[in-house]
Design a protein around this nucleic acid. Structure first.
Length: 420
RNA sequence: GGCGCAUUCGUCUAGUGGCCUAGGACACCGCCCUCUCACGGCGGCGGCACGGGUUCGAAUCCCGUAUGCGCCUCCA
């Protein structure tokens, strides 16, 4: 039998990265097994906010490339079915009315147990299980009734979810058995925490998929990083393409201990992916990022700047800082300038034609030698005058891209500032 | 408080009784490369929570303690 899993987020806001990791494991498992990955929204009302959150979730999954099978389903649409199922349990004496609500009878002795696909056998003493409200007095089903019933109706074979559901599992198992259905295999994955061991939240940095997109992370890198939070292929493989991840993913290699989200490692991995991109793809992705973030910069120039920054930034979000000088005026720090060097550089560069990095480099190197300065000493004031920063892409390439006219203007202006 | 889950370098992890004087990656430190910053190369620092067992032998199995987290809602 083919496997079928689901992601069942509640539409309470934006997609949290911890839920994305769980979604990823579901997706990888489904694709690896050649099964289905379903998306089910656990809504309890139909407000406008819910509709937006549901759309947001789908947009985020799409951006990540986690495609789902079939139509998206909504819990609210199954209220009537839940009510019918509850009535049957009532008629069979498996449930009883309690002040208008309907409660499911939990077994009183023995244990409820299951073989968790990531944790092994888990047992709960039944005496600790209280009779569960399955239908509220207002007629709406509760989560611990609706969710397992939907898993049954959807033919879910494996429930891969967060460990916060471990305590719910015995309740859901008893409900499923009471309606005469075969329970799915459960796999509880651990949580993802911030560096302080607390649940990931805004103060740790990016937490929603949107946050990561705005920071300029690249979806395949983010997925690769996330996959390694609680799962590994072997003792040394870290960089894996989406296809490799799908081919290699198994629940047996998912660990049960919680993980801390390491932003530095994510940055490193994102850099690995960005540097490995073919230049044209890199340039297009960079242009799209700059456009989406609303900078309004000349896209042709952004495209031409791509090769200058590809090896230097690990997130697209670092592009504006490094390349702003190409698009806007950047006042240099007067203390770091050197009038003599700048004047000389302006004169020499004024004679360079065509104004290309290839022609610029020997001229500036010769200049440094004539001034008896190390290249390092000689180039730094020029860099600061032209880019406004001590840190920039390669100087010669930067000058070429800026253009002769603007380069000379900046050199003149900076030289004047230095003399003042 | 009860029940449950977890515990290997700072972080992610490998490890399923001998291959472990515990391997890899990120971070950090040093050196090399170098027009800055990066990239890349080389090297280094650093860990089995604690205490009892079991065993010829334990990071690996059992028990206890500690710590962290989760759930205990007519929330999801």
């Amino acid at each position: 039998m083919s496997v079928r899993v689901r992601m069942a987020p509640s539409p309470t806001g934006f997609l949290h990265i911890g839920n994305v990791r769980t979604a990823l494991f579901n997706w990888l498992f489904a694709r690896h097994e050649d099964g289905e990955f379903r998306l089910r929204i656990e809504n309890t009302d139909t407000s406008r906010e819910v509709a937006e959150a549901a759309e947001q979730i789908q947009r985020s999954l799409s951006w990540l490339g986690l495609d789902w099978d079939g139509a998206v389903t909504f819990q609210l649409d199954r209220q009537a079915q839940c009510a019918e199922a509850a009535q049957r349990l009532l008629a069979e004496g498996r449930a009883y009315e309690d002040e208008g609500a309907i409660r499911f009878r939990m077994p009183d002795d023995g244990v409820t147990a299951w073989d968790d696909a990531v944790r092994g056998r888990v047992e709960f003493p039944n005496e600790k299980l209280e009779d569960l409200v399955i239908i509220r007095s207002d007629g709406r089903p509760t989560y611990n009734f609706a969710s397992p019933m939907e898993d049954v109706w959807d033919g879910i074979t494996h429930v891969i979810r967060g460990e916060d559901h471990i305590s719910n599992t015995p309740k859901q198992l008893n409900v499923i058995r009471a309606v005469g259905a075969e329970p799915p295999v459960y796999a509880h994955v651990s949580h993802v925490f911030g560096a302080d061991g607390k649940p990931l939240s805004k103060r740790h940095g990016s937490v929603t998929v949107d946050d990561f997109r705005h920071e300029g992370y690249y979806a395949p890198a983010l997925l690769n990083f996330l996959a390694l939070l609680g799962w590994s292929y072997d003792d040394k493989t870290t960089v894996m393409s989406r296809d490799e991840l799908v081919a290699r993913f198994t629940l047996a290699r998912v660990v049960s201990s919680p993980a801390v989200f390491d932003y530095q490692k994510l940055d490193w991995m994102n850099g690995v992916y960005l540097r490995a991109l073919p230049l044209d793809e890199y340039a297009e992705a960079l242009v799209a990022y700059v456009r989406d973030e609303g900078y309004g910069w000349d896209e042709q120039l952004v495209r031409r700047a791509a090769p200058l920054v590809q090896e230097k930034i690990e997130r697209f979000g670092q592009f504006p800082e490094l390349a702003r000088f190409l698009f806007e005026d950047v006042p240099p720090d007067p203390d770091l300038l050197d009038g003599a060097v700048l004047d000389a550089a302006r004169n020499e560069l004024g004679r360079v034609d065509p104004f290309t990095a290839e022609r610029i480099e020997p001229v500036l190197r010769a200049l440094a030698q004539r001034l008896e300065l190390s290249p390092r000493k000689a180039f730094q004031p020029i860099r600061i005058a032209v880019t406004g920063s001590k840190i920039s892409p390669g100087l010669f390439e930067s000058l070429e891209l800026l253009g002769k006219e603007r380069s000379l203007e900046r050199l003149s202006a900076a030289a004047a500032t230095a003399r003042a």
